[in-house]
Design a protein around this nucleic acid. Structure first.
Lengths: 200, 200
DNA sequence: ACCTGAACACCGTTCAAGT
DNA sequence: ACCTGAACACCGTTCAAGT
């Protein structure tokens, strides 16, 4: 059939991504389908495949938006004035808050798996590395010069630790009842871990 | 149609669970379908629904087996003699090792979501609580009497922290390269966190 | 050139009907 | 009583054909 296009390719891509974003935000990855996206934007399913390689490609671009949104928040905190340890605490709390605000979108990053044999794109790994860099930055004043390796290990441990708390708490798998309780665990992790670092 | 049953109901249930376990172990949750299970055991798809409520019910029972298998390992470690802090380290390493041995089965616990509005069954929550109890047990000698609340918070923080490291490392989202590197992060988390606890 | 929509190969789940 | 398998309402993805 075919009809005269009423959208530029770029507009069409954005339309698709917006629709996918909304579906995931409300219903999670399980609610997403190419056919549902097509229905919402008033195009046929085939159109999705004219604009993107496949559904995984669409999902990966939503993930990119989520990673960028979190990065913005972390950057804003790093710009604030404040005590070094407090800044690390704020980063951790910002992560927790972000995941509790948009749990389905955040969960997407861990629910979604590429088919076996497919690797995450390089730009995706770079975005992850970038987030880790924000934590490393905040930790720099707490480590003596030349101990980048220790600092980077600490950044990974704290990052993963906060991730574990948020992940188990949003999944209701930590036998805690509230977001506040999760916040206390995050505070405790950061405070106690930092207190346990070798003095310098 | 219908044919004379060649299996007792219990045998049939076990057959279904075994088939589902194998599919998930090799292909992950994405590879599981009621039709594929039926094919493997030589019954029709409808039979799955005679024996279980639905596919989620089957998956939940696989999850139960996984949780039980981890619990067994933790119990074995608690029975060993050894330094208190070392025991906590061993528990954490056992968790890491378990998740790296059976990554798809372990991932199941976090990939699988019940439909909106459905809650995890009570027995599932109890199994989770039970695992947490193992960590609390190992931490008891490290806390003064009467500080159960602090101890339980520490157990949750360590549990979630180790979970975060294993989860991000098996998903390749921590910019680390090896299981050994993940092991070092786990050691560092436990050692540094325990070192940072208020002295008693 | 752009977009469609039928087609293919799948799903989960139900339930009337057959042995 | 037990089990089937057709039926319903979905999927992702492709690609010949229509405008």
């Amino acid at each position: 059939m075919g009809r005269r296009s009423s959208h530029t390719p770029q507009q069409l891509k954005d339309l698709i991504l917006e629709a996918a974003y909304e579906i995931i935000e409300v219903q999670g990855l399980a609610g997403l389908s190419a056919r549902e996206v097509a229905r919402r934007i008033g195009y046929s399913p085939g159109t999705i495949y004219n604009m993107f390689e496949n559904l995984d490609d669409v999902v990966l671009r939503i993930e990119a938006r989520v990673l960028d949104a979190l990065d913005e928040r972390l950057v804003a905190i790093l710009k604030e004035a404040g005590d070094d340890r407090t800044k690390v605490q704020r980063l951790a709390q910002a992560y927790l808050q972000f995941t509790h605000e948009k749990p389905k979108l955040w969960n997407l990053l861990f629910e979604h798996h590429l088919p076996a044999g497919t690797e995450l794109p390089v730009w995706y790994q770079e975005k992850l590395d970038h987030l880790l860099t924000r934590v490393e930055e905040a930790l720099t004043p707490l480590f003596p010069a030349g101990s980048e390796q220790d600092r980077n290990r600490a950044a990974r441990v704290l990052w993963a630790g906060v991730h574990g708390i948020t992940s188990l708490s949003t999944a209701d798998k930590l036998s805690i009842v509230s977001t506040e309780a999760a916040g206390r665990l995050v505070d405790d992790l950061v405070a106690t871990y930092l207190a346990g670092l070798p003095k310098n």
